[in-house]
């Protein structure tokens, strides 16, 4: 597991989500990247049940339960700005038992699916973010396998991102700045996906013309 950067690619003007994804993958293939199967990241939101809230009227925290096809035997549970728990996939069953404390938000499931590409030591995953039946946006994940310190290889990653995202190259993800010298882990990637999904959910509340 190397340093990973997750970002959103805006839909090109006058194009559908699908067309923009195709444009992007064609660029990758021209660069020399090889197709290596598919990937999927999904996320479900849970509310803290009203009965367990304290009498001080504190707002219920949201918890996100996520899966990543790169780690098929694990389940990730995250709070916003909070700790990230990495558990076995059995954790899903446990959540059903904890219904009294955490309640699944209705129609909150959001996921991204797409193709996995390998280019040298880079792993690129371009996915379509869907919520319910409709496509909401495009996610681009780039992993650089050999390096484990985010700050070490950010300039290198940036150069690679620029080579196929052009003007849509993102800034450094927030998780990169958190711990300066720590080894990058799978949880950091999941936090980035959670932030991306939240961003896309908010975009959905303000309907934007041209997304679909």
């Amino acid at each position: 597991m190397g340093v990973t950067c997750v970002s959103q690619m805006p839909v090109a003007e006058g194009k559908s989500v699908q067309q923009t994804v195709e444009l992007l993958t064609r660029k990758l293939e021209m660069l020399g990247a090889e197709k290596q199967g598919t990937f999927c990241v999904d996320c479900e939101t849970y509310h803290t049940a009203a009965s367990t809230l304290g009498s001080q009227g504190q707002a219920g925290k949201l918890m996100y339960v996520m899966h990543n096809s790169e780690y098929p035997l694990s389940c990730f549970a995250l709070f916003e700005n909070g700790p990230c728990l990495i558990a076995d996939t059995n954790f899903d069953v446990l959540m059903v038992k904890l219904k009294g404390f955490f309640q699944s938000a209705k129609a909150s499931k959001i996921e991204t699916r797409g193709t996995r590409y390998q280019y040298c030591d880079f792993l690129v995953k371009v996915g379509t973010v869907t919520m319910g039946p409709s496509a909401r946006g495009i996610s681009v994940e780039v992993e650089y396998g050999p390096c484990v310190i985010a700050s070490d290889c950010w300039s290198l990653l940036l150069e690679f991102l620029q080579s196929f995202l052009g003007s849509h190259t993102p800034g450094a993800p927030a998780v990169f700045g958190n711990r300066h010298d720590a080894v990058y882990g799978p949880a950091d990637t999941m936090v980035q996906y959670m932030e991306l999904f939240n961003k896309i959910r908010k975009q959905q509340q303000v309907p934007v013309a041209g997304i679909r």
Binding site: C120, C147, I149, D152, C153, S155, L156, E159, F160
Partner: peptide
Amino acid sequence: LFQAPCQRCGKFLQDGLP
């Protein structure tokens, strides 16, 4: 290894390698 750009071409990557 991952932080120093090439002293000749000034870039980080060439054919996907630093």
